[in-house]
Design a protein around this nucleic acid. Structure first.
Lengths: 145, 145
DNA sequence: TTTGCTGCAAACCTTTTGCACCTAT
DNA sequence: ATAGGTGCAAAAGGTTTGCAGCAAA
């Protein structure tokens, strides 16, 4: 991505954004690229990554790491939020933990300067719990612990 | 790692465990391998990975993902805990968030069955905040957001 | 002896990058 | 025309795996 200059409007950027909006939950770059290809609006994999990174940097999408790969999702609002994520189908529910003030307090008491934090809950949604016996929608691997 | 059978006692297992115990905070597999090599007790990288994975699976170490790689750390007790991690030097402080009951409640209310969750706070410890101007001890990259 | 563990190198995967070409502006 | 975006293929990491040899039990 370019450092300066004005963002340019391109076909692939549109296609990617549109495809991303159509996604239920988090998708990996690879998966998104696959869907784009399947839907005919082919976009280079490198472009998908560059676009996604740029979006993440600007805060337009938020990301989460699941099982060794980065997952992306259109970010509805600007606030920082957390997620309840189905590791079966990627379905995502935004959750708002009550009172995260203790986090700042803990950090302060240890002399830390917080850069970022993660708080994600992984599990199976009710649909995927039932499909479980057959085969998970996409990816049954769960982060350890 | 073998699926069944009795675990065997080996030089490299000892060396790895010992080295791991000597670590302040989380270390990556690569870093641990480097330290082992440096300290003379050379152990194959593959073995480090296999050993680490096995330990993680058994719960003897816990892991965290930082900046695209998995980090490992000896687990003091069996309880599930969370961390305040310095992304400069890897120093880790175990923290105990007050009341995580809401997590179960949220999951239940959405019909989810929790498999795992992550809650880690990344930042710079006071030492690394000061070194900052020069060069971070190891790795200044921070997970996005 | 048996069979788990190890080392090496090759294989895998995801993500990044160099570079020439293309195309909004 | 200018310079940001794109595609391709190569490169870069980190992690896993196949396999033959080694060594605990």
């Amino acid at each position: 991505m370019s450092e300066h200059g004005v963002a340019r409007h391109t076909r692939q950027k549109d296609a990617l954004l549109q495809q991303l909006r159509g996604c239920e939950g988090f998708v990996s770059a690879q998966e998104l690229h696959r869907r784009l290809t399947d839907s005919g609006a082919s976009v280079g994999l490198a472009t998908v990554y560059r676009q996604l990174n740029s979006l993440a940097e600007s805060g337009a999408v938020d990301t989460v790491r699941l099982d060794g790969q980065q997952m992306f999702r259109i970010c509805d609002d600007d606030s920082h939020h957390h997620h309840l994520i189905c590791s079966g189908c990627g379905k995502t529910i935004e959750i708002e933990p009550p009172d995260m003030e203790w986090m700042r307090q803990i950090a302060r008491s240890h002399g830390f300067k917080i850069n970022s934090h993660t708080l994600e809950i992984f599990g199976l949604c009710s649909d995927c719990q039932h499909k479980r016996a057959t085969q998970p929608t996409r990816n049954s691997a769960i982060e350890r612990r």
